[in-house]
Structures are given as C-alpha cells and as structure tokens.
Nucleic acid binder design. Structure first.
Lengths: 242, 242
DNA sequence: AACGCGCAGATTGCTCAACAATTACTGGAA
DNA sequence: TTCCAGTAATTGTTGAGCAATCTGCGCGTT
C-alpha cells in the first residue's frame, strides 16, 4: 500500500509557503463550521452547569436538540474529547468527564510547573501584566459584591494571564483545557466562596510583586498559592465524596 | 432551549463513580475504532515521510485509500488537527502542518519550561530514570552505527522520559504532540546527523547528573542543551528556507 | 430470594448517496 | 497580459440504513 501514496494530489501548496495557520490557536478557519459551533455550544452548556459530570450525551438526543446531524455532532464530540471535557467509551457513548482525585492532582501539577515558571521567567512590562492587573481588580470588586462565581471566572482569567506571560500559544491552549477541566471539578464541589474567596488577596499580592519586577518572589508566592489551593480542593472533594 | 436539557438521559452512570477513564491517555476504548486506526495510520505516514509538510490530504482519495468512509476520515482529521499535525482550512481542506520559525520557537519555549522543570524537581530513583538511561545508551549505540534517524528517535524517547519524571499524564500528552510536530520540522530540514549528532553526549551527561541526584545541575545543563538545539534548528531552517 | 440465561430494544459505529456551498480551474474577451 | 465569466472539483452537511454491541427485562433454575 506504500505505492498508493502518490495518489493524493501531492502539490505542495504555495498558498502557505512558510506561513500556514498558526497551528496553535483555533485550528479551524474563519466561518466556524457547524461542528465547531456545536462544540462551543456544548462547552458553554458545561460551564453553565446544564451538563453535569458523569452524564451521558446521547447522540440522537443532542443532534436533534442542536439541529445538526449525528455525523457532525460526532466531530464535535471528537474535539471535546481531545480537550479533556468528554470521555468516549467504545460502543457505550460519550460522557461528561468526572474529575477524579488523580486528575485534580495532575492538573495542579501542570499548573505549578507552567504558571510558576511563566511568572518567574516573565519579562517586565509584558502586555499580559495588564490582564493580570484588571483580572485581580475585578476579582476584588466582585468579592465585595458577593458574586462568588464571578470571582471564580476572574480568578481563572488571572491565571490564564500568568500563563500567557510565557508567550506560547501551545501553553495557552493547554492551560485553557486544564482550566476548563478544573472548572468541572469546581462545579462538582459547589462551594465557590470557599474555593475562590481566600485567593483574591493573593492575586493582588502576586500582581504587585510582578509589577515591581520581583518575579522570583512572585513565583514562590504563586507556588504556595497553588499548593494551598490544591489542598483546599482535595479536602472539599473528599468531604463531598463521603 | 434551556428546558430541553432534561431530554438527554440524565442518569449519572454508576459505572464510573469516581473512576472513569483516566481522561488523559488515549481517550478511547479498548478496540480502537476505525477513526482512531485511521489517525494512527496517518500519523505513521507522517513520520515515515510519505506525507510532507504543506501537502493537501484529499478526503476522497484518502478515504478511498484507507477504505473508510469520508465521515470516519473526518473524525480522524479532527483528532490530528487537535494534535497539531494537520491544519484545517474551511472549504479548502486539511493540510500537513508546515512548521514555521514561530512554531519552532514556541515549541522550544514549551520544552524548556516543561523539561527543565520536570528534571529539576524530579524525585530520585524515579522509574523514568531507567527510561532515560536506556534511551541515552541506545542513542550512543546508534550513533556509532551511523544510524542517525535512529539517534533521532532515541533522542526523542530520552526527552519524553524526562517529561514523564513529572508524573503528569497531561504533560506527557502535550509533549507527545509537541514532539511529533518538531519531528515534522526535522523532516523538513533533512540533516539528521547535524540535528541529532551533537546531543548524544549531552544526553549521557544529563543522565548521569540525574542519577547522582544533582537535579539542579541537570536542569541548567538541559536548559543550555535546549537553547543550543533551538539555535541549531533555527539556523538550519533559515539556511534551508533561503 | 438470589443467581444465571437469553431475548428483545436501544444505542453506537460506520457506510453510502446525495445536495448545497465554496473554491479551484479553464478558456475566452478586452 | 489581465480580467472575468462558467464549469468542474472539493468540502460541508444531511439523512437513511445496517451491523455490532450494550442495556434491561423477564424467566427459569437452584
């Protein structure tokens, strides 16, 4: 079957001589396409809590609801599975991922390695610094307003900004996935004040440390931050599971 | 459309009470399924050089060649696109990714952050240490045999082992993707001796530093290693592109 | 009552054929 | 040559359909 390889139209397209799509962003073209739209819809239903961890997603029901064909929905499933939000069991169907202790530990391991390194090695005056500032300020504001779920999203934006200090599309994409998966775990715990409240002040601390150019100190502060957060989440998880 | 959400069979399956598939490994069940097989076949054709960067993959031709339907092939495309090996342009088709300077810089940025941190924070006597040892020995052996492409794969295995020191499935998966993409760039350059030769000895150096528990020194050595490798690759790339 | 067995019923895996939408190609006309 | 149709080819998406597999239920046996 080797000899068949010449069958594909082997024109090395001159359209993207060295350019080609960034290969690290959306991976899809400008008018999104139904499969991508469906994936986005499912993503938003996940963060809205309409789909809960462990729930099965029936192809027939969902394709009917989204008004797309089963084949198209399957493509969306494939994408979301690779993002870590759904699992696919052969001949059984796709399910919303249920976060485990192991996956939470894994996620925090990833976060410590990437976030701390990004912060420690960050260049001063990086554009993402502004994102950090506004996110931490927003978290502060929403905490005083009692909007704990808003605090959660602001927190996530803050950490996403930290990762983007590293200037890597691939790390940004990984973190987006990891972050979405962690949100699933939080939704399972259902105590946003306890999960997000204590870290608002730590955000501003890290924020100002970076602004002052003390990135090394900011890095260790963030490490402590994440270790504490991990302990909290795991404690809540085991308490909740019992 | 909110009220429709109850239409899906909302049984929280008791089959994976807290377990569920690891969610970080293959994402698919035991008998792989045609789409996954097709994705694997395409992957191997990529590393075999049968598919070159920039080449278009026609749905009709490939589905015919692989003896699967277009829809199934599309699922495979979706997967490979998320792995960073293919790009998808709306209404134009899928193409093998052509590595750019920017993507190479990005990949090395990821590698420095993850590999160095994994090595620096590595625990002693980690099982992956054995993988490092055998991989670096294999690279040494293959270099003396003049098998430079073999040296390349041994090198990749060595670095994959370093990443697995961090004990994170997600980092392992990310590194697998990044590594495959980098292989694409190497295939474009087509000078394995120049690209892999100089690093065989550095592998053993890092290897022994880790074995002696001097992880900090190993980490900085790896950092220099990667910086040098990046310079080499970028130089070859610009030379080749001109 | 508990356990195993087997048979529908439902769901997934995959294929095929078809059509709309878009892009690529080809052949003139200016 | 350049521009601009018109045509061909490819992708996007659908819907039906069938085989393979899983699920659940009833039934008989112990």
């Amino acid at each position: 079957m080797r000899f068949l390889s010449s069958r594909y139209t082997c024109r090395v397209t001159a359209e993207h001589p060295t350019g080609s799509p960034p290969a690290g962003t959306t991976h899809t073209a400008y008018p999104p396409g139904l499969a991508d739209q469906a994936a986005e819809t499912i993503r938003q239903r996940l963060i809205a809590g309409e789909l809960v961890p462990g729930q099965q997603l029936s192809e027939a029901a969902l394709s009917d609801d989204l008004a797309i064909s089963r084949n198209t929905l399957r493509e969306a499933f494939r994408a979301l599975t690779y993002e870590g939000l759904l699992t696919h069991q052969h001949h059984r169907g796709v399910f919303v991922v249920v976060p485990t202790i192991a996956s939470i530990i894994d996620i925090y391991r990833v976060r410590r390695i990437i976030e701390c390194q990004a912060l420690t090695q960050a260049l001063p005056k990086h554009p993402a610094g502004e994102r950090m500032r506004t996110a931490s300020a927003e978290a502060l504001r929403l905490r005083d307003a009692g909007d704990w779920v808003g605090v959660g999203t602001a927190n996530m934006e803050f950490h996403s900004a930290i990762v983007s200090l590293a200037d890597s599309q691939r790390l940004d994409a990984l973190y987006a996935n990891v972050s979405a998966e962690l949100r699933l775990a939080f939704s399972l715990l259902d105590d946003p004040e306890f999960l997000h409240g204590p870290y608002v002040d730590l955000n501003t601390t890290i924020d100002t440390l970076y602004a002052e150019g003390r990135t090394a100190e900011a890095g260790v502060a963030l490490n402590d931050y994440l270790l504490q957060s991990e302990r909290t989440v795991l404690a809540a998880y085991t308490r909740h599971g019992a």
